[in-house]
């Protein structure tokens, strides 16, 4: 029976390393947990902990449906998907920000002048909500990657994307026009698990909070 296990969905990719470091610091078992292995599920019988290795965009789904009790994933993914989960803690690492970026030659443009223009993005919900909140009508073009290509190829006038250092923007001759919001890694929780497995979740929450307060794990 898996019911007595606490299942945590981990994001593959850049968040994994700092996530494993945080888990280890909090006294959780992490030996052999890696995205390079073929295993996608890691059970620690003694501690009754199970990790599942997911694409970041799938983490909220596993948590909302209760397949995982907890998940560790970026705010960018959470805000785009709007799933019904508890967002419990800001883990601090994995900083990035949502921005509207335009080709360099248009860096003097005013946001208002982008009304009725086209924006390419992997985050159509965030983009739509932002432009609407500004009273603007912008056509959203949903792409799955390499969004920077869209203005170069002329299918969009601007992009909405997440950036951390801004290097990719510079390399593609784009400049940040407006920041929409900041994003860091969050701990999310299924709404039923939060109630039925609270005794297992609470100690974890407390040790995470302590580590973050100490300013560790940046």
């Amino acid at each position: 029976m898996m019911q007595d296990y606490l299942t945590i969905a981990l994001s593959k990719g850049t968040l994994l390393k700092p996530t494993l470091k945080l888990l280890e610091e909090a006294g959780m078992p992490v030996e052999g947990v890696t995205e390079d292995s073929r295993a996608m599920v890691f059970n620690f019988e003694e501690e009754k902990i199970r990790y599942i290795m997911c694409r970041p965009t799938d983490v909220p789904t596993y948590v909302e449906q209760g397949a995982a009790d907890l998940g560790i994933v970026g705010k960018d993914v959470i805000v785009e998907q709007g799933k019904d989960v508890y967002e419990l803690l800001d883990l601090g690492y994995g900083y990035c920000r949502f921005v509207v970026a335009v080709p360099r030659e248009k860096d003097k443009v005013n946001l208002r002048e982008l009304n009725y223009k086209r924006a390419a993005t992997k985050f159509p919900v965030v983009a739509e909500n932002f432009f609407r909140s500004q009273g603007l009508q912008v056509e959203i073009i949903k792409l799955h990657g390499n969004v920077e290509l869209a203005p170069i190829m002329g299918i969009a006038d601007m992009i909405v994307d997440i950036v951390s250092t801004g290097r990719t923007l510079r390399e593609n001759n784009l400049v940040e026009l407006v920041k929409i919001m900041d994003s860091t890694t969050r701990l999310i929780c299924n709404r039923v698990s939060y109630r039925t497995k609270y005794d297992q979740i609470r100690p974890l929450l407390e040790s995470f909070a302590k580590i973050i307060e100490k300013g560790g794990n940046k």
Binding site: Q3, E64, Q65, G66, A67, N190, R191, V192, S193, R195, T196, K197
Partner: peptide, 9 residues
């Protein structure tokens, strides 16, 4: 009402 067997109320 909640059950540990289902992630929904």
């Amino acid at each position: 009402g909640y059950s540990p067997d289902l992630g929904y109320g």
